[in-house]
Nucleic acid binder design. Structure first.
Lengths: 208, 208
DNA sequence: ACTTGCATGCGTGCAGCCTGTATGTTATTT
DNA sequence: AAATAACATACAGGCTGCACGCATGCAAGT
């Protein structure tokens, strides 16, 4: 029997093709990297034409940006899903780090967010997307809380958050490359504990 | 008057064109990034033809790899030039970090080594070049020394070195983006001091 | 309700550029 | 003088972004 073009609203059509493009693009970007992935391959996998791609996205980089934005969203969601919330600031940083480490192990996530994204979108572009959905801001708030509670040394919160974020990223990369998660988690906690231990020193301990 | 082709040895010819290519490529990679730099532009700037480029380098990525390798070499040289050498392990890490931070401020170095290199050569490829000329190994040795001296917590040295290296990188990036070097240095020292402070705790201090 | 006009979603073809290689030419080494 | 290294030139294939064309959804007026 004939299939009458199944009258769909424009909104529906757009959404489905956008999703198809984003899905196909993500898979190929992960498998081959941004530079090695050609738009003809993407649209073939998505079952549409290049016309559709360039109708929905300004260019190949814009498509990539959309994929990365969705990925940040997913990371934030994964972390939020595992959030125990209210606890002391230092413990919160540690458990947040663990949650981040776990969330980043989703297939291809490290390549997408930590390898290709900075080169394609620039560091600033990545940070923008990251901050748009929690990420860095969340971490900075955690650092500020730890400082305010007197558990961390009094240093500029944003720069410290940047360094910690970078360390978390590298840890995620190491795990994705085969390093034991427990090992990286241990080292991360050593760094955080260090910052915290530092604090109690002048006031709460006596050095012999 | 005529310029007789000035008989030059093959070695000389190769060296000069290689240098011209590396120099021109570096400048363009820094100015526009790897992906946006075309080989025709590189050879035009170098005053040779694409034939020469593909005679000396397997492909565009190989040329980039050579540029990156030279840059790591330069970083190592800059750091070595500022090395005060023998001091206590923790102080050595701090001064090493400062030297690294300063060395990375050379024009375009952060873009080359921290943004494009990971995407083009892969994390493993970058680490390989880095280790080939000191870099990570140096840092790992420093960490091992601090641990051996009982100044750092007993954690796997390599992973900790990775995290610290990553933090240093991010600090260099921040400074290149306009952040005050003193600020980043302060934060880095806070992290290192934290790791060190941690250590004296069980043995050398009494917690009240 | 109908149709008229416009906007949206998408397919197709084209122009320009870029990479890598094959082939030719000149200079150097042996 | 033969062989080889250092380059120059020409070419093939592929990719990106845009211009254009077509069909369908949609909003308004009557």
């Amino acid at each position: 029997m004939q299939v009458p073009p199944a009258r769909r609203s424009n909104r529906e059509r757009s959404d489905t093709t956008r999703q198809a493009l984003l899905g196909a693009a993500r898979a190929l970007f992960v498998a081959r990297g941004y530079a090695e992935t050609a738009t003809p391959d993407i649209v073939a996998a998505a079952g549409v034409t290049r016309g559709a791609l360039y109708h929905h996205f300004e260019d190949k980089a814009a498509l990539f940006r959309a994929v990365v934005a969705a990925e940040f969203e997913a990371v934030a969601a994964d972390i939020a899903a595992a959030a125990p919330a209210a606890m002391d600031p230092v413990a919160a940083l540690k458990s947040g780090g663990a949650a981040f480490l776990a969330a980043m192990q989703a297939e291809g996530r490290t390549r997408l967010l930590l390898l290709d994204a900075p080169a394609v979108l620039g560091r600033a572009g990545v940070d923008e997307l990251d901050e748009a959905r929690g990420g860095l801001n969340e971490l900075q708030l955690g650092v500020e809380a730890a400082i305010a509670a007197g558990r961390f040394p009094v240093v500029p919160a944003r720069p410290l958050a940047l360094l910690l974020s970078s360390a978390f990223d590298r840890a995620a990369l190491a795990v994705a490359d085969g390093e034991a998660p427990a090992t990286m988690q241990t080292v991360i906690e050593a760094v955080i504990d260090g910052l915290a231990a530092d604090r109690t020193d002048p006031a709460g301990t006596v050095r012999l």
